[in-house]
């Protein structure tokens, strides 16, 4: 594999062919914030928090760091005034949907994003797609997916698949930045296949009473 030399925030960084700007930056301990990125999953480019400025042949451009492949002599800037204001705006918009997400609040502190800037429209889901992509790419179960489009887009568990697969897995739960996923799952479960949870609940009840 050929080595590619590029510059990130003024620092010379060596990267391999096929790496993204985000990979290269992380290998050099340069932090780029992400929300929808997961190391085991294909890059998605959904949240745009990893937006960075690149410069090639004297021209500047904004790209998503998690998708953009490294190229020789690329100059990358990860913290400029413009980038910070973009990230601040993205965070403020996401906070209108999920105001209590710890991950968003941490980033909001760093970028001085005001969680009350936009009117609350609490859908609690930021549509990062982590649960959906994890279920599809790693587990290959396809138990959860997007439905509808535009402003009405949301995640949706398929009861027929979820009833058989999710109870013993739930590996997507810790991935969710807002914990809306858990709520969506439990709602589907309660509506479509309540037997499992009620059975284990009654079992718990029995064990506690016998103790």
């Amino acid at each position: 594999m050929s080595e590619i030399l590029l510059q990130i925030d003024g620092k010379a960084v060596k990267a391999k062919q096929g790496m993204t700007v985000l990979d290269a930056a992380r290998s050099a301990d340069i932090a780029i914030p992400t929300l929808c990125h997961h190391e085991q999953l294909e890059p998605y480019g959904g949240c745009r928090l990893c937006t960075v400025e690149i410069e090639t042949r004297g021209r500047k451009r904004l790209v998503a760091g998690c998708l953009y492949p490294v190229e020789p002599d690329l100059i990358v800037r990860t913290r400029t005034e413009k980038i910070d204001s973009i990230r601040k705006m993205i965070l403020e918009l996401l906070l209108a949907h999920a105001p209590d997400s710890p991950q968003l609040q941490d980033l909001a502190r760093e970028y001085r994003a005001d969680r009350d800037r936009f009117e609350k429209e609490a859908s609690f889901c930021v549509l990062c797609g982590l649960c959906i992509r994890y279920c599809a790419e790693i587990k290959k179960k396809y138990a959860v997916g997007f439905i509808n489009n535009g402003a009405r887009r949301e995640i949706n568990f398929i009861p027929e698949i979820a009833a058989g697969e999710c109870w013993n897995c739930k590996e997507c739960f810790p991935l969710c930045p807002t914990s809306y996923l858990q709520a969506a799952y439990h709602l589907t479960e309660a509506l479509a296949f309540p037997s499992l949870s009620s059975r284990s609940a009654s079992k718990r009840l029995v064990t506690t009473t016998t103790l």
Partner: peptide, 22 residues
């Protein structure tokens, strides 16, 4: 939709996503 998913070899979530998108 379920039959389409099965016969075409497309995951049901994907069929749902597309059928609800348009």
């Amino acid at each position: 939709l379920a039959k389409v998913s099965q016969k075409l070899g497309v995951p049901f979530t994907r069929v749902m996503q597309i059928a609800t998108f348009y």
